[in-house]
């Protein structure tokens, strides 16, 4: 069963086709990666999926439903979670509150009952806090619960974002360069975390440069180059694809 379907997706900026007729589909509950040299259009693709840009043509479907034309927060409600390349954290709240923020759509956010401190709101928020604490333990941040994000190391902030995305109970989670800026031990932990994620049934999509990580965790890889899909398949298939090798070596040389 496919979870995310990208159908003939294109995005044109001025004369530039940043995303050019890209199609692929991603199977539910698996770990997938989108890779490509710098400027291949990975970020644009991510922005099209999350709703920061609207495509020039084509479709993005999550669980069979089209996401096109829907604002980001609605897509989140439909089961799309994401993290950012550089961690986006609210510095005016504690770590656990950042995670609780991810549960926004599951909670009652009406003003009047909140102002009157209705018991339903208070108890739901208490449960939300407990769950956020669980999620922080799950991603290995158990000791940072009430910490101020400013005092946390970079790698911890990246995992805090994953916990926040998970708090929204997503069907699919997009991780934008989760390994960037991490040291080797942190990368190993990240790799374990990603495997745990897919075991728990969350579809995972990485946009990542770190080939070691990509090859070790992914079941399926989509390779982009100059906005077009260059290849897709299992790590072995992609690794042996001459066009992929050329694209990467061409850059590296």
């Amino acid at each position: 069963m496919s979870d995310l379907q990208v159908v003939a997706l294109s995005k044109v900026f001025g004369g530039l086709r940043a995303t050019d007729d890209v199609s692929f589909s991603i199977e539910a509950g698996t770990v997938n990666s989108i890779i490509g040299p710098n400027g291949a259009g990975k970020t644009t693709l991510l922005n099209l999926i999350t709703g920061i840009y609207e495509p020039s043509s084509g479709d993005v479907r999550l669980g069979g439903k089209s996401l096109i034309g829907k604002p980001t927060h609605v897509r989140v409600g439909m089961g799309l979670g994401r993290t950012f390349q550089t961690p986006q954290i609210c510095h005016n709240m504690s770590a656990i509150e950042n995670v609780m923020l991810g549960s926004h759509l599951q909670l009652d956010s009406r003003l009047a009952p909140a102002a009157l401190r209705r018991r339903s709101i208070v108890s739901a928020d208490k449960q939300c806090r407990a769950r956020a604490a669980e999620l922080m333990n799950y991603v290995g941040l158990g000791r940072y619960l009430e910490e101020s994000p400013g005092a946390m190391p970079y790698g911890a902030l990246k995992r805090l974002e994953i916990a926040r995305a998970l708090a929204g109970s997503p069907k699919l989670i997009l991780l934008d360069e989760p390994a960037a800026g991490l040291g080797a031990p942190e990368k190993a932990e990240l790799s374990q975390l990603i495997s745990k994620l897919s075991e728990s049934g969350v579809t995972t999509v990485l946009v990542e440069h770190d080939m070691k990580l990509v090859m070790s965790v992914s079941k399926h890889i989509v390779v982009l180059n100059y906005g077009k899909k260059l290849a897709e398949g299992t790590p072995d298939v992609v690794r042996d694809n001459p066009e992929v090798i050329a694209a990467y070596l061409g850059r590296a040389a």
Binding site: P71, T72, H73, L105, L111, A114, I121
Partner: peptide, 22 residues
Amino acid sequence: APIGRALRALEGPDALAASAGI
């Protein structure tokens, strides 16, 4: 309340708040 957190999140970048479903 949850709405208070959502309000504080509005201070930050739009992408952050939106990605939390706000």
